[in-house]
Design a protein around this nucleic acid. Structure first.
Length: 823
RNA sequence: GCCCAGAUGGCGGAAUUGGUAGACGCGCUGGUUUCAGGUACCAGUGGUGGCAACACCGUGGGGGUUCGAGUCCCUUUCUGGGCACCA
């Protein structure tokens, strides 16, 4: 009978024991250096599949290796438990979202344990629990107190399917990030967080984040979108009011032939009063036609349109009259919602001017051109100014400064910086979320719920299948009294964007049961920052930006200390596909955790996920692929288990060996140890190469097995469980126990790579002639150039290729290569 | 359109700093063992030629630097991702 590794019983046995012994608990006090390692917390949607396992297995391997390298590792897990899927399930089926969520958490916690992960479950959190969202509300109140949370009416993104507004970051290609329906534009009064107040710091501090993927930093940079330029004030002819435009190209100011204004601009109402009734009617009609269109529809999807208002602005320097147009392509929310139209030097203005027959006035020419020729396309580069009064002949760069000075002196301009980043809209017109702790009083206005009245509990409600509703419909929740004046008042009926909860949960893990503060700053001082954060790249401008904003706020408030960035190192794992396709229920190609654990075992699954590609790459689940890892585990079992009575702690000292095969075996052990250590400490996490080296080791062990095992084989067998513990924790633990050890292999120190064992005595000397390999000769390590040349010349193939040629020179790379240059 | 990352056997990948291209695994081919086997063991497996020794070709295409290039430079094609009227 072949000896087979009976994974099912063994894996269960150890998962139970780890749990009952709380093996992975991270004490707040320890003599060891701390290491905070975390994966993005999951939404409890139902079932986990092997795609989730790829993420958690990587994080687990990292945490386990760091623990075995001597760190006090904090590796927590929790649940991002508020959100729309639960509410939608509740509406579909007429059930309670809390119950649905609790059931899913139960199942997913079981599945995460089934993966053999080593989390500190004593720190588990769920964001839908009052103990958690109470602090969510508390943090909101602190933001409110500082003026960083405010309510205002603004054009916002409305998803007609999900029946709620969305943050800018949650609109992807003009569509709702969750349900992919086209987003509409609505003017609504909503709660915002003033993330723009932190725009400069969020941008500048990206440079500190050397441990982040460059592409993620670039995405955040682009999202924040800082532009340096100037504001210019254009008076409106016939009005006391003016229009301010933002431009980065002040050097083109003399090329302005029109002003383009968003139909939402404040000036429009005033303009209607000074133009003809026909013009006013046309303005209204144009504004109405764009009113509900989203930014995407108005800009990317539509051609440029616009109407002349009938009014004129006055150019601040030339005092010429400039027609004011309303257009679809000017964004109301950026740069003041008005643009100076310079068709000669801007693609968009050129396009619009051509369509509407507006004048094109060239004022910049390339430095090497003397004359103005009719433009077939706008000239958008810097150059030399023309037709610009005293600024003519200046370079663009100098003119920008000179014109800015003049405008400032005249009081009609100022240098200015604009950002694409907009304030974070956090109101959601949905039930299953954190209630915003504000009361609207007729007399007092917006009043914060006093902190001692937190949490504002999410009221229970009946869900009837097919029926949507929000907190606004629950009268006993809405109707209240004002905390200030005790007069009649109404509670805020919106709940918070769930990204609010996930912007600070990494701090709650540090102090999950604290009922007087969201966390103790001393704990934060000890554990922060997160040393390694692992999660998907899809959060690059969502969670990862919001969290940075929150953390900077906390830092300013003195609640956290040290660097004002939460995540020192970030790693994005790649997707996991199934046979080249995305896993999804509708395709029916989802590989579940349970069935995989049952068929192949968890250790095999973990090894496969780490082995198939480097972790940042998209990888592909195949049933054939995992069988290779099942085979590896069986080979490990057969190499080690029969010797379990022979090996014990006395076999763990590195033996001396003279025999080349034994030396190779010892070396293979330490090659694995070095690889695992290096891949972890370098944060490259390419455990695929570590496991390939493990394959080589096991191949050597299989070849070396005999009735009289050598000291080197016994050594390899005795330390193998330590080597594989981070990757295949169950089989490692089982072998360890069978060797007679009383405590867990996961409490052992990892095998320290030994230079003596890694040293090679014999090398392969590669002999090249003119760069082509002509011989490979075994040679002792440390051989000198002369001796190497002698060996090479003794080789018949080398001599044949050198026949009749003069040796010009030789390049010798120690212990590797000798290249003879000859002609 | 702009920005970023890639392209290596039938497949996933290895080669971290210019120095043996294809480690390791999957698949495939042949064999051994077994009453039996999707899960064992052994051997082979980039292409062409050759009994072999060996030779030539080979890391998307083209060019270059170098004694030597998957790796560096220029250019080009394709793939993936992000941004996309931000004035």
């Amino acid at each position: 009978m072949l000896l087979m590794y009976e994974f099912a019983a063994i894996e269960q046995k150890w998962q139970r024991r780890w749990e009952s012994e709380r093996l992975y608990r991270a004490p707040d006090e320890s003599g060891k250096p701390k290491y905070y390692s975390m994966e993005m917390l999951p939404y409890p949607s139902g079932d986990l599949h092997v795609g989730h396992a790829k993420n958690y297995t990587l994080g687990d391997a990292v945490a386990r290796t760091m623990r075995m390298l001597g760190y006090n590792v904090l590796h927590p897990m929790g649940w991002d438990a508020f959100g729309l899927p639960a509410e939608n399930a509740a509406i579909d089926r007429g059930i309670d979202p809390a119950a649905w969520t609790a059931e899913n958490i139960l199942n997913m916690r079981r599945q995460i344990r089934l993966m053999g992960t080593g989390y500190d479950w004593t720190r588990e959190i769920a964001s839908c629990e009052p103990e958690y969202y109470r602090w969510n509300q508390w943090l909101f109140l602190q933001l409110f107190r500082r003026g960083l949370a405010y309510k205002r009416e603004a054009p916002v993104n409305w998803c007609p399917h999900d029946q709620t507004v969305l943050a800018n970051e949650q609109v992807v290609d003009g569509r709702c990030w969750r349900c992919a329906h086209l987003v509409e534009r609505r003017n609504l009064s909503q709660w915002f967080l003033r993330i723009t107040a932190y725009a400069d710091r969020l941008l500048a501090d990206l440079d500190k984040l050397g441990g982040w993927p460059e592409r993620t930093r670039t995405m955040q940079r682009n999202w924040i979108g800082r532009s340096e330029g100037a504001n210019v004030t254009f008076a409106v002819d016939g009005l006391d009011e003016s229009i301010q435009v933002f431009t980065t190209r002040l050097d083109t100011l003399y090329g302005v032939t029109f002003l383009a204004v968003a139909p939402e601009h404040r000036i429009v109402d005033s303009i209607k009063r000074i133009v003809s009734a026909d013009d006013a009617a046309a303005i209204d009609a144009f504004a109405a036609s764009l009113k509900s269109k989203s930014e995407l529809e108005r800009t990317s999807l539509m051609e440029k349109t616009g109407i002349f208002t009938g009014a004129y602005a006055i150019h601040p320097l030339t005092h010429e009259r400039v027609p004011i147009w309303l257009t679809n392509y000017v964004l109301a929310e950026y740069g003041g919602g008005a643009v100076m139209g310079v068709p000669a030097h801007d693609e968009r203005d050129f396009d619009f001017a051509k369509r509407r027959g507006l004048r094109v006035a060239q004022v910049i020419v390339p430095h090497d051109e003397a004359v103005v020729v009719p433009l077939a396309a706008p000239y958008v580069e810097d150059g030399r100014l023309l037709a610009s009064e005293e600024y003519s002949e200046m370079s663009s760069a100098r003119a920008r400064d000179a014109i800015a000075e003049r405008l400032i002196a005249l009081g009609v301009g100022a240098k200015s910086v604009s950002y694409k980043l907009r304030d974070w809209l956090i109101s959601r017109q949905r039930y299953w979320g954190t209630p915003i702790p504000i009361v609207h009083c007729v007399a007092c206005g917006e009043v914060a719920v006093p902190e001692d009245q937190l949490p504002v509990m999410l009221p229970p409600r009946e869900f009837v299948a097919g029926q949507t509703s929000t907190l606004a419909t629950i009268a006993e929740f809405i109707e209240t009294t004002c905390p200030k004046c005790s007069g009649p008042a109404r509670r805020e009926s919106d709940t918070m964007d769930t990204f609010f909860e996930s912007s600070w949960y990494y701090l709650r893990y540090l102090d999950p049961h604290n009922d007087s503060a969201p966390w103790d700053p001393r704990r934060a001082a000890h554990w922060m920052n997160v040393d390694q954060y692992i999660g998907g790249a899809e959060h690059a401008v969502l969670h990862l930006l919001y969290s940075r904003f929150f953390y900077k706020f906390f830092h300013d408030e003195g609640w956290v200390s040290g660097p004002d960035e939460p995540f020192q190192r970030l790693f994005h794992q790649g997707l996991l596909l199934r046979d080249g396709e995305k896993m999804s229920k509708s395709r029916g190609n989802v590989v579940g955790i349970d069935e995989t654990a049952e068929r192949n075992g968890v250790d095999a699954m973990r090894l496969f996920l780490l082995y198939v590609t480097p972790p940042e790459e998209t990888s592909n689940w195949t049933d054939d692929g995992i069988s290779g890892r099942v085979r590896l585990l069986n080979r490990i079992w057969r190499a080690c288990e029969p010797l379990s009575g022979v090996v014990g702690s006395d076999r763990r000292a590195l033996p001396n060996a003279a025999d080349p095969a034994e030396r190779a075996l010892l070396r293979a052990v330490h090659v694995v140890a070095k690889s695992a250590t290096d891949e972890t400490l370098s944060r490259r996490f390419h455990y695929n190469t570590t496991i390939a080296k493990l394959d080589e080791l096991v191949n050597l062990m299989t070849a070396a097995s005999s009735d009289a095992p050598s000291p080197s084989l016994l050594y390899a067998v005795s330390v193998l469980p330590i080597l594989i513990a981070p990757f295949a924790p169950h089989i490692a633990e089982e072998l360890w126990e069978r060797y007679g050890h009383k405590s867990s292999v996961h409490l052992e120190r990892y095998v320290e790579p030994d230079e003596r064992a890694l040293a090679v005595e014999e090398i392969t000397l590669v002999v090249q002639i003119n760069g082509k390999v002509r011989a490979r000769i075994a040679a002792p390590a440390g051989i000198g150039e002369e001796a190497a040349m002698e060996l090479a010349m003794a080789d018949s193939n080398v001599r044949a290729h050198l026949d009749g040629k003069d040796i010009r020179k030789a390049i010798y790379v120690a212990d590797k290569l000798l290249n003879v240059v000859a002609a």
